[in-house]
């Protein structure tokens, strides 16, 4: 992003596309200016505004970790006009990128602790960034467990990476909402599986992302298991436009999700006005 004009996107080229599910695809992009691509620095959890000129902008988390710099990766669920258009792009197409924006997961404070990721659907995207970042710095963290749920076996993203994640030292617990033929893993919504697995809260940080309803029940399940508010992190989604704390729309009381978030601890959330 130019320092001068925070509304001006950098031009970028789509270099690779992965169709993850019937309604989620992943774009791998490179900033057109090689110098800027080299200098691009961000933290796990930060987001970008992607532009399709003529259609507008929409917010997506940068879900490649800062430790892997071959490209910037964004996963897009088909919802809304810009996302719909992003789903029609081909390799070689041009988009605009305003990034990095927002805050990030406080991974420094998570060092030396066990980590529990709890994710549902497309919200695996922000978790992927932090998960890979931690796997790339594996010795800094203790046990890393991921509970990842989707509606059906066909609704998981990044399935082609699951083996790599395990090899790098993560335990994966996969679950689908309902019984499905030949599904070898768990069945049941994420909060339920979370309660059954009951990962010990001692010296552990839980990071949970998902649709609002899942978050609500996942937070309740975590608290039930004895997790304190300070041990739980989540990301919030709001409709955004500027992404830089000016246009006014993403506020919860005096906090702006675009600059004060998207990452919040449960302790921070409890201190905020209830307007999710």
């Amino acid at each position: 992003m130019t320092e001068l004009n925070p509304y001006r996107p950098e031009m970028a080229t789509v270099i690779e596309i992965v169709e993850e599910t019937h309604n989620i695809r992943t774009l791998r992009v490179l900033l057109n200016d090689p110098e800027k691509m080299k200098a691009f620095s961000f933290q796990p959890g930060q987001v970008g505004q992607l532009s399709v000129f003529g259609y507008g902008e929409s917010t997506f988390v940068i879900n490649s970790p800062p430790t892997r710099r071959d490209y910037l990766q964004f996963s897009i669920m088909q919802a809304g006009e810009v996302a719909g258009r992003l789903h029609q792009l081909n390799v070689g197409d041009q988009i605009g990128v305003r990034a990095p924006l927002g805050n990030y997961f406080p991974y420094e404070n998570m060092k030396g602790r066990d980590i529990l990721f709890v994710g549902g659907g497309i919200a695996m995207a922000p978790l992927r960034t932090l998960l890979l970042f931690m796997l790339d710095n594996r010795k800094d963290y203790g046990d890393i467990t991921l509970i990842y749920g989707a509606r059906t076996p066909n609704d998981f993203c990044y399935t082609y990476e699951f083996d790599d994640w395990k090899k790098a030292g993560a335990s994966l617990i996969l679950t689908v909402d309902n019984e499905a033929p030949d599904w070898p893993h768990r069945v049941g919504v994420v909060p339920k599986v979370l309660a059954e697995e009951a990962p010990n809260p001692k010296n552990r940080i839980a990071v949970t992302c998902g649709p609002p309803i899942m978050i609500k029940f996942a937070l309740a399940a975590l608290k039930q298991l004895g997790y304190a508010d300070e041990q739980i992190y989540t990301t919030l989604e709001k409709r955004m436009k500027c992404g830089i704390g000016i246009c006014g729309r993403c506020n919860i009381g005096e906090k702006y999700v675009c600059i004060d978030g998207p990452v919040f601890s449960c302790a921070q959330l409890s201190a905020m006005l209830p307007e999710l």
Partner: peptide
């Protein structure tokens, strides 16, 4: 001061606008 940002385009060109919301 709240505003929206939208694109207006026709053919091969257009504008990114900000407008009062």
């Amino acid at each position: 001061y709240c505003f929206s940002i939208t694109d207006e385009a026709s053919g091969m060109s257009g504008e990114r606008m900000r407008s009062w919301d």
